[in-house]
Write a protein that binds this DNA or RNA. Sequence first.
DNA 1: GTTAGCAATCAAATGATTAGAGTGCTAACA
DNA 2: TGTTAGCACTCTAATCATTTGATTGCTAAC
Lengths: 349, 349
Amino acid sequence: MELDERKNIILKTIIRNYLDTGEPVGSRTISKYSGLNLSSATIRNEMSDLEELGYIEQPHTSAGRIPTDLGYRFYVDSIQQDSEKKLAASTNLMLERVERLEMLLKRIVKSLAADTDYAALISGPSIGNNKIKYLQLSVPEEGKILLILVMEGNVIRNELVTIPEKLDYETVRNLDIMLNNHLAGLSLEEINTSLVTDMMVQSGAHGESVKVVIDTVVELIEHDSENGEVFTSGAKNIFKYPELSDAVRATELITAFEEKEQLKELVKEVTTLSVVDGSDTGEVKVYIGGEGPVKNMQNCSLVTASYEMRDGMKGVIGVIGPKRMDYEKVMSTMQSMKEQMDRAFRDQQ
Amino acid sequence: MELDERKNIILKTIIRNYLDTGEPVGSRTISKYSGLNLSSATIRNEMSDLEELGYIEQPHTSAGRIPTDLGYRFYVDSIQQDSEKKLAASTNLMLERVERLEMLLKRIVKSLAADTDYAALISGPSIGNNKIKYLQLSVPEEGKILLILVMEGNVIRNELVTIPEKLDYETVRNLDIMLNNHLAGLSLEEINTSLVTDMMVQSGAHGESVKVVIDTVVELIEHDSENGEVFTSGAKNIFKYPELSDAVRATELITAFEEKEQLKELVKEVTTLSVVDGSDTGEVKVYIGGEGPVKNMQNCSLVTASYEMRDGMKGVIGVIGPKRMDYEKVMSTMQSMKEQMDRAFRDQQ
DNA sequence: GTTAGCAATCAAATGATTAGAGTGCTAACA
DNA sequence: TGTTAGCACTCTAATCATTTGATTGCTAAC
């Protein structure tokens, strides 16, 4: 059995109706609103077929039909083909002004949540496979070294390092130069044991201190690539949708939004997935039910897009809502956000 | 009418019972469990008095009594007087190991939430009225300056500043020295216009760049004192308590826990309140219903304590739960956490 | 001052009935 | 062969009356 044009229209009508009302839709409704001029009996036959094909299902005998995950997938794909994406009215971010990146991200995620009425997240660009530009040591007090690490793209990290000896200004300066000579321009993978031993040997009596500093550098980069910040907004929107608000699911989402660990995992997967896909990187993507990175959120869908900053650093924006979500609006809002951000970051360079 | 010994006992029994069961308690229950050997009729008379005094109330006719905010206050105060605080079993934090402050705070707040089963928060120590130790400039690329700000207590902040001119290494070095001469040892309030003008004049042609840098310094400190980080854990615990889980209150709490702005406000108020009180700083405090900093959380109580790091920098830990909360357990857990933290930070120095 | 007893009150549970929406099937129709 | 009208059947959700049980306040007796 195939999905002919008529089944196609009926299925879309069912889903659109269900997205609107949240109620299972019956044959009579479709008979009236599909524009096909068919009686409810005929529709019933077709619906029976659609159910057999796995696109819709009945919550219980005497109820109408609701879309299955496969049904949603069909719907979302068919939206994406309708390339005449009429962009949704979304907040103009006015990204021209320079401000702290953190503030900027928070503002973006906030309007994303406000525009869509779902929960939104944004990941800051992570330094990940980035290269060290330079580092800088100073001595805030005896026995400690303040390490400043500047990565390509001017991402800056600092850490206070406790060293096992007291070093004078001149020595620290020399170590600083030596470290820069060896490390500048390298990425995390390129820092191997032989290189470290090399530096330790070269710094003679201060080998131990140098080791501590290098370890800290490695730690900082690793920590950051696993731990790129994620901001969220609109978690409360979850409560607007009765099909989710029951304790279990709410708890899951709330925990995810509080602990952020799961969200970071999610961001990571989305990033790597889009790299694997290759071709359509940057496109808006939809994960329905437990698809892709959205494990254990059976009743939610996730819409993502990635944006690009200077130096090829990428971040992800996403919206999480119930499976019964206004996909068209969310997808086009997302698209418009992404474009605004890409443009702003490009111009700002 | 006064609170004599008998009323005292009855009131405590009512509250303890209500905390246990969450159900309004009736006269018969008290008659059985108070240990006073009084009939329910007598208890009824006393309860009627207690209601008139404002300690308890009836949700509706034919229901038992529940404590009012005043009742809770009485109960909490009477706990605090029972100075034989049997410390609750709380996670041993094993704070000896040095780790990143952020990680440490997250771990603490997590076990606080786990131990109490309520939502917990912790504020990192803020630099607030702290003094500048030194600052450091470097040039990651033309037209930009990397500003590193080190405060007393080795709190470090950095920011990339865009300046209106290209400066060579030597000039930046001189500006660095000049800025340190003027700013080192000062707190935010001491940076006034005349000082700024002074520095601008002294740096001649580079006055504009200096101004931008100083502005950034001020911004960093201000931003931080308003924005000291707050970590939370256990927001999901809110759903364990049916009296809170209905949408409105849940939404309020969830938003507060996501946006953190309200929590920061709260932390700020707790900190300033305890400064005003003076004497009993550092004690565990309880705010019931809308008391103190817990505006718009009519159905919650807040238990707080402040901890101290080196250099007198203070932070706050807190637990938010329903008014019907196990005050004894929370208060003693809090006390023990606070002590562990104080001890650890003192020893670690 | 304390208590037993009793009527009055009210929320919450129970159960029966009804209304309504929807399906599947069959037979008739074009 | 595809479409439709009609009808019996199913199941949920709403409604309403009734019952149950907990609790109070009051009064009169101890």
